[in-house]
């Protein structure tokens, strides 16, 4: 059996690196709708794609969080990108593949992926 105490070795390696904690308020939030309908429509792999993607790209000032009902069942899975000082962007009918595009173009590149937003779905 693996033990969580094995994390001590990982911690000791990380201590060497100077890690600046970023204030939650200055973070961009990626909010995944995790209500019943969201989960049924595939929100779990979408959340995974966002959190794995953000981490593997080494993006530090982005936080992935979950929320309950966003109120738009037929557009689930829904993901909102909330950046400080910017208007909220709502992505609909998300998949893991679309998540990768959003990370690349929007989160890293700064360009909203308009074709997946709620406005183009309506």
């Amino acid at each position: 059996m693996k033990s969580l105490e094995e994390l001590t070795a990982i911690r000791d390696k990380m201590q060497a690196i100077v890690n600046l904690r970023i204030e939650d308020s200055s973070c961009t939030k990626i909010v995944v709708g995790m209500a019943t309908c969201g989960i049924a429509a595939g929100a779990r792999p979408v959340l995974k794609a966002f959190s794995d993607g953000v981490q593997s790209k080494g993006i530090k000032d982005v936080m992935v969080t979950q929320e309950g009902c966003i109120g738009l069942c037929k557009y689930e899975p829904i993901v909102e990108v909330v950046a400080p000082g910017k208007e909220k962007v709502t992505y609909v009918n998300m998949t893991a593949e679309k998540a990768a595009e959003v990370i690349e173009q929007h989160i890293i590149g700064g360009n909203v992926v308009t074709k997946y937003t709620i406005n183009s779905a309506m």
Partner: peptide, 22 residues
């Protein structure tokens, strides 16, 4: 996990990979 890491951020690739294999 928080006790092991204290102030050191534990939201990293290495830690998540470990949790997953754990």
């Amino acid at each position: 996990i928080r006790k092991i890491f204290g102030d050191i951020p534990c939201d990293t690739h290495e830690v998540n990979d470990f949790i997953q294999s754990f």
